[in-house]
Simulated scan of single mutants.
Amino acid sequence: MTGNQTEALFGMLVTFGLLVLMVLPSVIGIVRDRRVDRQLREAQEAVSAGKETQKSSDRSTVPSTATWYAEGRRSKKLVNS
């Protein structure tokens, strides 16, 4: 290989590497979008097939500690004023 051929090969490899770096984020995005679409399609099929899903009314109705703290603060304000 002559010096010119080596330089041309190196230039092509650098150009190809830059092309890959520029295209890679869009390919990753396409793959991610397809995965999300597949998950949404599977969830829609599960709902249309009549499978039970958890409803918000099935969740525990116990207030969180932050709610109790806020309620206590409100009642103290009412008593003090």
Rank of each mutant, 00 (worst) to 15 (best):
V79A: 08
S64T: 15
S64H: 09
M1H: 10
S56A: 07
R59M: 14
M12D: 10
K55R: 05
L9T: 13
L21I: 15
R41T: 03
L40Q: 03
Q5H: 09
S48N: 07
L18R: 10
E71R: 15
V23A: 08
R38Y: 04
V62F: 06
S48Q: 07
V14S: 10
Q5N: 15
E42M: 02
N4Q: 09
R74L: 10
Y69H: 11
A70V: 09
T53P: 00
R34Y: 12
T67Q: 11
S48L: 06
I28A: 04
G29N: 08
R59T: 11
G11L: 14
N4I: 13
K76A: 14
G11C: 09
S48I: 05
K76C: 07
D58G: 00
D33L: 10
K51N: 12
R59S: 10
V36F: 03
M1D: 14
G3W: 07
D58R: 00
A8V: 15
K77M: 14
S57A: 15
L21N: 12
N80S: 08
V31P: 01
G11V: 08
T61I: 10
Y69P: 01
I28G: 00
A70P: 01
P63T: 05
T15H: 06
S56D: 05
D33Y: 13
S48V: 06
V14E: 12
V36D: 02
V31N: 07
K76M: 08
L24G: 05
E7H: 09
T6V: 13
W68M: 10
F16Q: 13
T65K: 15
I30D: 04
T6K: 13
A43N: 01
R34S: 14
F10P: 04
L40F: 02
R38D: 08
I30L: 13
L19P: 01
Y69G: 12
